[in-house]
Amino acid sequence: MLEITNLVKRYGHDEAVLKGLDLKVEGNSVVSIVGASGAGKSTMLRCINRLVEPTSGSIKLNGNELVNLKGAELRRARRKIGMVFQGFNLLDRLTVMENVLAGRLGYVNLYQAISRRYPQDDIERAFVLMERVGIAHYANKRADELSGGERQRVGVVRALMQEPEVLLADEPTASLDPRTSEQIMILLQSLASELSLPVLINIHNVAQAKTYTERIVGLRHGKMIFDGLPADFNKDALDAIYGGIEAPDDAITEPPVEERSHDFV
């Protein structure tokens, strides 16, 4: 169970991007998070696995507090949180199999990682999952030789290799054509129930959100303004989330420059 309480995130001295979010996701539900660009969807997801440092608030995964973890503890927590990215974020020059096995990096030791001598169980699991999504025959192909849909399947399998307790997907279908993006959504939906895994999906496509997920959360300017079933997500909700000709503070909440390059590794 993922439990977010009063989550606040502020970049530098700007206005807060997330202004006290509360969200509870239980069991194997698939939740979609919708909202206009800049609403804070990615920020929220990244706060969960701490790619972004929350300013304040609490995030609990199965009872464990995540926001104040450091070093090895943080890494141990992260391996229980799978993430799928909009741009796939694959290791382009490595093979599909290496990309998939990279999901185990939190579990194996450095020697195993560098020599690619993963435990037999991991390799077996990799093949099973790759077969499940239909990319097993590409095991030794370089990741950048695959098509977009295939690449995102690699991304999904990599996240599942972590044996996650929750799966985060940040616009997993935004770089894909409509057909392929439907396939990926179906895949995420069915994997969630097969592995009884809660899944959070940031998504712009409201139709897909309604079709493939069982709960919709709407964000606007860092606040949750809708939380309910797809059936209840009507025109009014849509207007509240995306309508914005009259929105006075649009200009303030969307600073044009982003400075992301400093903190990593």
């Binding site: 141990r76 992260r78 290791l91 382009d92 020059r93 939190g106």
Partner: peptide
């Protein structure tokens, strides 16, 4: 490209593993 680096960090990999997988090949 720092996106693969981010992906490796998200798996819970240590610094050395992030270097070996996301930086060295690039």
């Amino acid at each position: 490209d720092r996106r693969p680096v981010e992906a490796m960090e998200a798996t819970g990999a240590s610094k050395a593993k992030v270097i070996a997988y996301a930086i060295v090949p690039q």
